[in-house]
Every structure is written in structure tokens, then in C-alpha cells.
Amino acid sequence: MEQFVVTFARGFGSGGKEIASRLAADLGIHCYENRILTLASQMSGLDENVFTEVNERIRSTGGFSGFLRGLPRSRQYITRNDEFVSDDTLFEYQKKIIRDLADTESCVIVGKCADWVLRGRENVVSIYIEAPRDFCIKRTVEHMKVTEETANATIEHTDKYRADYYKYYTRGNDWNNPVNYDMTLNSEKAGIDNCVQIIESYLKIKQLI
């Protein structure tokens, strides 16, 4: 096949984004996550912030990183009063971008329900990365420089948003159901580097690389 796509769903703090980025670097292809929002903004003519606000159900000025940076470091929990957001029109733009990418180049796509958007395509491999909570907390504390309490609350809330987002846009499917994916990996047990190698081995078995 001329091109292939690897999609990633990931629990917050599991290292899924890092695994996706490393895989893309090894294979010499692009890794798309927030850049999809930029492309959708350019296609629609709408401000990119509009897409950021509904990105996997996280609504906060400046995106999720800005949201985290604004939290007190000693805070014990995160209070969210934002209304549940689902903008079908914006999601349609994202779907078109994802499908256009799959039609034109080999790439890695993180999140955005890409596995469901591209379902049924023989040149698409879908991956789900998860890990025990303690491992995710430790990584979040190290990477985001927050307390364990804030890390735990952030993981819980973010994963809930992602699950709700996925369920809404995939017509009731469960985000963390392993049957939705070609492969589910525990990044703590396998290790970040080994996850990359395992996925590459699977791509070779599928004769995509």
C-alpha cells in the first residue's frame, strides 16, 4: 500500500503521546495531534481557539496545558463546572482533515476519534495505550510539575472527558474497550521504548512497513 496510518488513543499520563511521537520519528512520518485543529481552522475559516475549546471535551483558554499551568500546585482537586460541549459541525471539519491525511500520506494521529473515523480501512492500525494509575500519576507529576493530588484529579477528569467525547461521536462506543483497537498496550509493563518496537513489529506483520 502507498500509505498507512497509525491511530492512538491514550490514558492521560500513560505516555501514549510520547510513544506516538517516537513511532512517527522512527518511521520518518508526521505525528498529528493539535495540528489537526490548526488544519481544521484553516479549512473552515474559524478561529483555532474555537476548535481548541471543544478538543476532546476540554474547554479552557489556552488549551489544556494552559489550564494545568493555572492550577495552584498544592490544590487537592480540580473543580470543573463547564457545560458538556458537542459541536457536530466542528467535529465534521476534523473528520475531513483526518480522512484527507489518510488519503494522502502515511502518518500517526493521536486522539480525535481517529480510529473510528478511519474504521474499515485496511491500511489503518489502531492502538490504545494505558497504564496503572500510580504510573500515570508519577509521569504527570514529573512532566507537568504538579502535586500528586492534582495529577490524580487531572487524570480522572481528563480521561472522563475523553471517554464521553468518544462515546458521543462514535455513537455509543466505549473509548477503553480493547475490541475497538488492533492492539492495547500497558506502557508501564511493556515500557515506552518497547511499546514503540512492538507496534513497529505489528506494522511489519501487517506488511505496512
Rank of each mutant, 00 (worst) to 15 (best):
V85W: 08
T61Y: 13
N180M: 07
T7S: 02
G15E: 07
S74T: 07
Y181M: 02
M183A: 01
Y93R: 06
D182G: 01
V124F: 09
A40K: 06
M183I: 04
C136P: 10
G16N: 03
A114Q: 07
N49M: 10
G28W: 06
M43F: 14
G45T: 13
C113N: 04
S201L: 13
K189G: 11
G70S: 04
V125R: 00
Y166A: 03
D134G: 09
P178Y: 07
N81H: 12
E156P: 03
K160T: 12
E142N: 14
G16V: 03
F67N: 03
K189V: 15
W116F: 10
T147E: 13
N34D: 15
I199N: 02
R59L: 11
D26V: 00
D159T: 08
N194M: 08
R73E: 14
F12V: 08
R133T: 15
I137A: 04
V179T: 05
K189Y: 14
T158V: 15
N55Y: 07
K95D: 14
M183T: 00
V124G: 02
I19V: 09
L203P: 05
L101C: 06
T154M: 12
A9V: 05
G66K: 06
R162P: 13
V196R: 01
F64K: 01
D100T: 08
S74V: 06
G13H: 06
S21T: 07
L23C: 08
I97Y: 12
T150R: 06
H157A: 15
Y168T: 00
T158N: 10
W175G: 01
L101D: 04
Q3T: 02
E105W: 04
V196L: 08
I58M: 09
I198M: 11
G62D: 09
A131Q: 09
I127N: 02
H157E: 15
N123C: 03
Y161Q: 09
E156I: 10
C195F: 04
F135Y: 09
Q42G: 13
T52W: 12
T154S: 11
Y202K: 08
P178K: 04
K95M: 13
W175T: 01
D88L: 06
H30I: 00
T89I: 13
V124R: 01
V108K: 00
E148K: 05
Y93L: 14
L27P: 07
Y169T: 01
E105C: 06
